[in-house]
Nucleic acid binder design. Structure first.
Lengths: 128, 128
DNA sequence: TATTTAATGATATATAATATCAATAAGAAT
DNA sequence: ATTCTTATTGATATTATATATCATTAAATA
């Protein structure tokens, strides 16, 4: 009993997120998928990205400035965001658990997730 | 030689951010200021909030889901965000510097800022 | 008080994302 | 293989947040 149907569009979108390793946005995923499926709609891209996130197939990386990005890599990790060019890079945080234990937050706040975004200028942009 | 003029609107907006301690959004700041200055424009609120951030009078707290929030408290601190009601709470992070030293990021990335957003459910919402 | 121009208010525009809805097609039932 | 059900699609409208534009207003100074 599956309530989720296996459409060409959905698998193309998943495949695209898995093939683009630069944390693409919905717009970039659309521009890539439309090459192979010319009448795919942006609404379909947005819908399926959300659905794939819900199903745990991909992750959403939300950055403050603009559009959401999507990540094929499922292991727990964080991101560094370049505010010059908008690039997103993976980051490891071995000290995080230690830090979370020592963090003081509001009373009785149920911590579920910790989003850490480093901002700065990436190597490429520094060279310019 | 001042290029920034002291308008009634600007000081009202600053005063409002300083009086509302719940990390208000531009919309909330507008709704508060319009009580005292009925024909203030939303554009003016947005413009002045950005200007006050630039001048270091207030801070912008960018959350992924929706509108930006503004903070009168200037000391370095972080935030916990409740994804049920959208409330933002202050957080202290004594272990952060330690963690930043041990974090592994992309080669030659110039780290300038670290935005940490904890997501979860606040005490109020947990009681419901 | 007059002058200069930064700032305002109103509106248009941009961007990201969701909502709506008739048409289509995936997958089950026959 | 064909029919049936309804999830999904594509197209478009709508929402939300924020910025851009521009004539008018009003700070600050001369």
């Amino acid at each position: 009993m599956s309530i989720s149907r296996n459409t060409i569009q959905r698998s193309l979108i998943l495949q695209t997120v898995r093939s683009l390793h630069h944390h693409p946005t919905a717009e970039e995923i659309y521009r890539e998928t439309v090459k192979y499926h010319p009448n795919i709609s942006k609404a379909t891209v947005y819908r399926n990205l959300n659905l794939l996130v819900q199903q745990g197939e991909i992750l959403k990386v939300e950055v403050p400035d603009g559009a959401d990005h999507f990540d094929f890599k499922l292991q727990y990790h964080h991101h560094a965001y370049c505010h010059k060019c908008g690039s997103i890079y993976d980051m490891e945080m071995p000290a995080l658990e230690d830090m979370m234990e020592r963090a003081k937050g509001p009373q009785d706040f149920l911590l579920e997730e910790c989003n850490i975004l480093f901002r700065g200028v990436c190597s490429k942009c520094r060279q310019k």
